[in-house]
């Protein structure tokens, strides 16, 4: 073989291998996400009555209604095409309600009565895609309030950890002082303790300052853990910003605060964005401490957690709750992603 074609072949093999590896990783990462989202849109029937469980909810629904001695029987089409009887009776009101709950469709009593009069008949009503989401919020008490509480806790956590941690990071990067190294390690000390083990003293402390079962109290606890990480991220970012840039601002008329605001802060934005993202995700996902530190005012993960454990609720509803919980983290990361890559030459995360 000619050397050039050999080289081409080798290059081809290399790219192919790379694509296989990348695709494999993507599949591994995306499979659980896909299963979760898919499950959150499935009807009760699809989630519980099919074997094997379908990978995706069916695009449409087909009903069949037939007259029997006892009245009418309503059947629904399964994935394999056969019809399975769903309910039998004469009360269109009750039968439609049962069908709606089982199949996530918008079947009304009037529609069913109409079909009964023309029985036997087959038809396909519209599927209600968001039925599980609606049901989740209906059956989980206080889920809406918990969602907003979670947003509040996350924002306060970000605010606190970014201001305190960011300024501390700046101090670590710019000033030499006694105990600097020890202190920098010290801020990581609080992260050593697992949330569960530190939860009891936190209950006592928050209780004594009147913040037990309050979102603010929870945010304080999260912020303390988050500050250490923020300090480390921002300190390395501030170290990467040449001191000369600040000195130039000083010489050219800026005060200390002005130089920080106009020069240092915009340059540190990637690091601050990364810290904000970590703080958001940590606060948003945290369940165990929230479980202990709240009683009547839980955050959203606690609600989802309880939905998962509750034997009465069902897995497709819990999946809907989980997607609602995952979505803000995805959106938040997506929104700040452009700040996280290096925006200007020379300053990288």
């Amino acid at each position: 073989m000619k050397p050039e074609s050999l080289r081409m072949l080798r290059r081809l093999a290399r790219t192919t291998t790379l694509y296989i590896v990348v695709t494999g990783l993507a599949v591994i990462i995306l499979t659980p996400v896909f299963l979760l989202v898919s499950l959150s849109f499935m009807s009760d029937l699809e989630a519980y009555n099919e074997w094997p469980m379908p990978l995706m909810p069916a695009a449409g629904i087909a009903f069949r209604v037939e007259a029997t001695e006892a009245g009418y029987v309503l059947s629904v089409r399964k994935v394999d095409g056969s019809f399975q009887s769903l309910i039998e009776g004469t009360d269109a009101e009750a039968m439609a309600a049962f069908a709606r709950r089982k199949t996530n469709c918008g079947l009304t009593a009037g529609e069913l009565r109409q079909a009964m009069s023309e029985a036997p008949r087959e038809w396909s009503p519209q599927r209600e895609w968001l039925a599980n989401y609606r049901t989740f919020f209906q059956v989980s008490p206080g889920a809406y309030a918990a969602l907003w509480r979670s947003v509040y806790v996350a924002l306060v956590t970000i605010g606190l950890s970014l201001t305190i941690g960011g300024l501390a990071g700046y101090a670590f990067a710019r000033y030499r002082f006694v105990g600097r190294k020890g202190l920098k390690l010290g801020v990581l000390f609080v992260r050593m303790f697992p949330g569960v083990s530190i939860a009891i003293p936190m209950v006592i402390i928050l209780g004594s300052i009147g913040l037990y079962d309050r979102p603010l109290g929870l945010a304080l606890v999260y912020a303390v853990g988050q500050i250490g990480l923020t300090v480390w991220i921002t300190a390395s970012i501030f170290l990467g910003i040449p001191r000369e840039l600040e000195e130039a601002a000083h010489v050219f008329g800026a005060s200390a605060v002005g130089a920080f605001w106009h020069v240092t802060l915009p340059l540190a934005l990637p690091g601050l964005a990364a810290s904000a993202m970590y703080a958001f995700i940590a606060s948003w996902n945290e369940t165990i401490q929230a479980l202990v530190l709240t009683q009547f005012n839980p955050t959203f993960p606690v609600v989802v957690y309880q939905a998962l454990l509750d034997s009465r609720s069902m897995v497709h509803l819990a999946a809907a709750g989980s997607v609602v919980m995952a979505l803000p983290a995805v959106i938040f990361t997506f929104l700040i992603r452009r700040y996280m890559v290096s925006m200007w030459g020379g300053v990288n995360v």
Binding site: L245, H250, V251
Partner: peptide, 20 residues
Amino acid sequence: LPPRKRRLSMVFQNYAVWPH
């Protein structure tokens, strides 16, 4: 006096032009 009140200007070794 702080640098900003000295009415002088400076060119730095690494230029120190603000990258943003």
